[in-house]
């Protein structure tokens, strides 16, 4: 059997005209329908981002007082995952123009021409509605309302309003990613409390140092796309200081649940140790060998390390919360 030579992922179908082809019994209505695979539709859901969202949502659900039947808990997590993916698909639809000029995102299904923009939008809207309705049916209306709010915040506030207008896009838009532990909590309890608000605040203040570490070594991409990320607008040196300041604010905040007696010592000690590691990473980013305007001379090695650590940090911090709840 002859292997196809030019239909791989990440490749443009340049030269392929929209066609109604009749060959070997194959009819296609256009290049998008023809060349998209199931993996492309899955990629629209930004599965890598979804991982952290699902995990923090699951921890919110685990640490909440009360009990949710495992089937309903699974459904709640599924709804959080699908909603995050749906918001990601709508984001890809809206950002298809800048995705096409950024090296990191040019291979995504829409800019690569494998999925039509309108189909991606319909897919995102349908999955959003599905996630919210099923969440309401399986758990409660309050959890569904917070889920809907998180989708709306990501799509309208972050993607459409802030992302292209202000270097504070990540700071305010980060709230969208902070909703999952709240949704998990509300799915169990049906209401809000101090703890989910603190979990929201922790993810909210974690997002800027996490994302600015990425933007330090991806700033050329953002500059090319005209996205006003902090290193593009205010420079690398200012961004390094902001990473340190936000990290210094974040670490004491993570200790607050322990200080207020909402968690035990396992979480408290984990928060302190992990936080010290995060501060060390931030200071290394600040003291990275750099030129007069703050551009790294080490290919942003400390920023890359800080970005990786920030992901591990949030995973382990929230895992410690769950361990503390069941062991402590």
């Amino acid at each position: 059997m002859t292997e196809p030579t030019n239909v791989g992922h990440g490749q443009n179908r340049e030269g392929s005209q929209p066609s109604l082809a009749l060959l070997s019994g194959t009819m296609v209505s256009g290049p998008e329908e023809a060349f998209s695979s199931a993996a492309d539709w899955f990629a629209l859901l930004k599965p890598r981002v979804m991982t952290l969202v699902v995990f923090t949502g699951w921890i919110g659900l685990l640490v909440a007082p009360g009990h949710l039947h495992p089937v309903l808990a699974f459904t709640a997590i599924l709804c959080i995952a699908v909603a995050a993916g749906a918001a990601g698909a709508i984001n890809m639809w809206y950002d298809r123009d800048i995705d096409a000029v950024m090296r990191r995102t040019a291979g995504r299904p829409i800019p690569a021409g494998r999925i039509a923009a309108g189909e991606a939008l319909g897919y995102g809207i349908t999955l959003s509605a599905f996630a919210v309705v099923v969440m309401a049916l399986a758990t409660n209306v309050a959890a569904a309302a917070v889920l809907a709010l998180s989708i709306a915040f990501y799509v309208f506030v972050y993607t459409m309003w802030l992302k292209r207008r202000t270097p504070q896009n990540i700071v305010i838009g980060g709230a969208a990613g902070a909703f999952p532990p709240v949704i998990g909590w509300v799915a169990v309890t049906g209401g809000l409390d101090l703890m989910p608000i603190l979990l929201f605040a922790i993810v909210f203040f974690w997002t800027p140092p996490h994302f600015w570490s990425l933007s330090l070594f991806a700033h050329a991409d953002y500059a090319r796309a005209g996205v006003p990320m902090l290193p593009v607008v205010a420079g690398a040196r200012h961004t390094r200081w902001q990473i340190v300041l936000y990290t210094l604010f974040l670490v004491p905040l993570t200790v607050v649940p322990w200080a207020l007696g909402l968690t035990g010592a396992i979480y408290g000690i984990a928060a302190i140790v992990l936080g010290l590691g995060f501060i060390v990473c931030a200071i290394r980013v600040l003291r990275d060998e750099q030129d007069a305007v703050g551009i790294s001379l080490t290919k942003d090695a400390p920023a890359r390390a800080s970005f990786k650590y920030s992901i591990l940090y949030l995973f382990v911090l929230f895992a410690a919360l769950a361990v503390d709840r069941f062991v402590g």
Binding site: A21, L23, T26
Partner: peptide
């Protein structure tokens, strides 16, 4: 534009 046999199989 008709697809080649290889493209058709990929589709």
């Amino acid at each position: 534009t008709p697809l080649s046999r290889a493209d058709s199989q990929a589709v």
